[in-house]
């Protein structure tokens, strides 16, 4: 005796299964859009098999570069160029983050609804959004190369400008999320505006903002490699040179250095971030989620 057999005697009306028309149309539309994309992108799909035919060959060449004695010529040069380039990239990212951090503090206060006048808030937000819309590469192209010339200095400034956009927005949002109690208490005690901003607003958001800065540093390391391809120096410039001459053993070493250093910096920066946040009473996941939009 089971559920199925006995119940069949008292069979009631079955509700009709709802139509799947909407889901089907949605799925078809998505497929059409993707197919159209595949066609309109002008991609030469016929070359797709090359990944498998050429890929294996190049990959083994890259590995070959890695396993060579790093103190023999020319590999010693490759390794020192890779490490030097990475160091320059990290410096660029660090200075860029510093510039962005310093500039984002006033921008954040100006863009916070519970601090500034509504008109000021709107104007600042438009500026921050405009910065966030454009990639760092565009700043480097438009503003910096004509004035600062090619090189890491221009790259750091471009990263700094880019960082102001995201850091300013996140700082403003953090300021808007503070506990208003201490602000009220400070006002009631007759504290001047500057003291209120420093000791109630800034004290409350400091851990969160520091975590955002570190996050931005991690992102800037990747972004600095991007700027390298237009000649802003760092590992990106070395990498695009190596690709130009198809020096696969060199490329292998470069990619290895990028991966290892980035993973290490992410781990250290992540640990510091968690430590800063752990003592602050702000939810760790909330900070992570906010920072995901960096």
């Amino acid at each position: 005796m089971n559920a199925a057999s006995t119940a069949s005697e008292t069979r009631t009306v079955r509700p009709e299964e709802p139509g799947k028309a909407r889901a089907t149309i949605g799925a078809i539309a998505l497929v059409v859009v993707v197919l159209a994309g595949g066609f309109l992108s002008n991609a030469d799909w016929g070359k797709l098999p090359d990944i498998f035919t050429e890929g294996g060959k190049y990959f083994s060449l890259m590995l070959k570069g890695l396993v060579q004695n790093p103190f023999s010529e020319p590999y010693s040069e490759y390794w020192s160029a890779a490490l030097g380039g990475m160091l320059e990239s990290i410096s660029m990212a660090w200075i860029g983050t510093m510039i962005g951090a310093v500039l984002s503090i006033p921008m954040g206060f100006l863009a916070a609804r519970n601090v500034s006048h509504p008109v000021v808030v709107q104007v600042t937000r438009v500026i921050l959004n405009a910065i966030r819309t454009l990639p760092e590469l565009v700043f480097a192209i438009i503003l910096l190369l004509p004035i600062f010339g090619f090189g890491p200095n221009a790259g750091a400034l471009a990263l700094g400008i880019g960082a102001v956009g995201t850091l300013g927005k996140l700082t403003a949002e953090a300021l808007e999320g503070i506990d208003p109690g201490p602000v009220e208490a400070a006002r009631a005690a007759g504290a001047p505006g500057s003291a209120i901003l420093r000791w109630t607003y800034w004290s409350q958001v400091l851990p969160e903002v520091l975590a955002f800065w570190l996050y931005r540093f991690e992102i800037n390391i990747r972004a600095s490699a991007i700027l390298g391809i237009i000649g802003a120096g760092g590992i990106g410039s070395v990498l695009s040179q190596a690709f130009r001459y198809r020096e696969w053993d060199f490329i292998g070493i470069l990619l290895f250095v990028i991966i290892v250093v980035t993973v290490l910096v992410d781990a250290v920066s992540g640990a510091v971030r968690h430590r800063i946040i752990a003592g602050s009473g702000v939810s760790d996941t909330k900070v992570e989620q906010d920072a995901a939009t960096l």
Binding site: N42, A43, D44, D50, G55, I226, I258
Partner: peptide
């Protein structure tokens, strides 16, 4: 850990310059 530009460079080397 690799930036998008590194992937572009790799695939340009594999399948040539272009959208693919």
């Amino acid at each position: 850990s690799l930036p998008d530009v590194a992937y572009v460079l790799i695939f340009v080397a594999l399948v040539g310059v272009g959208s693919l």
